[in-house]
Amino acid sequence: MYLIKLFFALVVAFLFSATITSIFILFQNTIWNIFWLKTQGFDIAFFVLIDSLLHDLRGGLSPILIQWGVPINMYAVIFIALFFGYFLTAIIRLIIPINSIFSYGFAGFLSVYGIIFFTKMAFDEIVLISSTREPLGLLIFCLIGSIGGIFFNQFKENFLRILINGKNT
């Protein structure tokens, strides 16, 4: 029974944290682009910003590449990267008991960096997420991954606590 609850807590925590990470990543990209336009003398009204953010949330669903005939969108890329990052971290933590907040935070950082690293390799140095073409943008992008990893850890522990104790203590 404990294993089922653990599995359920992990799945829910992953879905919650990966969704939040994806939204933050997409928003960071939008705000980065909008900020550059501001430096070019564009007047960015509040509704333009909101409209752009909503557009990019929807835009994340459009396929960015087709692999083995399967269209893969931005959310899928982020989810897959984070899944492998957290999975690997969980295995490492079974062998080396590193602090969980630190280890999942670091895993999130490396996972999203991996997205950029592997797309650059696959597309001849082309960076598909425009905000990460600048060092500062890349750092913020990776820090979002890191925050996502910390969220995952916190969600996982809280959900497990709720499931086992029946309340959030």
């Binding site: 939008t30 336009l37 564009f42 752009s52 557009h55 835009g59 598909l128 425009s130």
Partner: peptide
């Protein structure tokens, strides 16, 4: 890329403006 009729390959907006 300040004005464009296209969007980025990732599906995100490059610019919400089409003319200036």
């Amino acid at each position: 890329p300040a004005i464009t009729y296209g969007i980025d390959y990732s599906g995100s907006i490059i610019s919400p403006f089409k003319r200036k």
